[in-house]
């Protein structure tokens, strides 16, 4: 995490600067095709389509297949959504059913 990102790290009222060219890289960690994983993926897809159309990529990582990846991203809960880009890295755990909290977690909505 760079010093430059300190401002955007805070959940202030100002919206994070999001240039038109910002590419969102999202990772969804799951463990197999559990109902929770499926719900999470569906919810994520929906939110991304609504908010970030065309400038996002979602990578789904199945920890059952690649268990060593869990430690690298400090994953302990499932499902976990990790925003790799834009920095800073943010983590959202749960099945993403609470859309508002997902948006807060992704810094897409100011905290009201």
């Amino acid at each position: 995490m760079n010093q430059m990102d300190v401002n955007s790290n805070k959940r202030t009222k100002e919206k994070p600067e999001r240039g038109a060219n910002d590419q969102w890289v999202l990772r969804l960690y799951v463990a197999g095709q559990t109902p929770k994983a499926l719900t999470a993926f569906a919810n994520l897809k929906k939110i991304c389509e609504e908010q970030l159309e065309g400038k996002y990529s979602i990578e789904v990582i199945d920890l059952l297949k690649n268990p060593q990846l869990g430690a690298a991203d400090q994953i302990f809960a499932l499902p976990t959504l990790v925003r790799k880009l834009p920095v800073p890295v943010r983590k959202i755990i749960g099945d993403l059913s609470n859309t508002e909290r997902v948006l807060i977690g992704l810094d897409l909505l100011p905290v009201s």
Binding site: K36, T39, I75, F76, L78, G94, D95
Partner: peptide, 16 residues
């Protein structure tokens, strides 16, 4: 850095 957005479990911890 963590936002809770619904149901989850600690499976990742188990897997790790």
């Amino acid at each position: 850095e963590i936002e809770e957005t619904g149901e989850y479990d600690l499976d990742a911890l188990f897997i790790r």
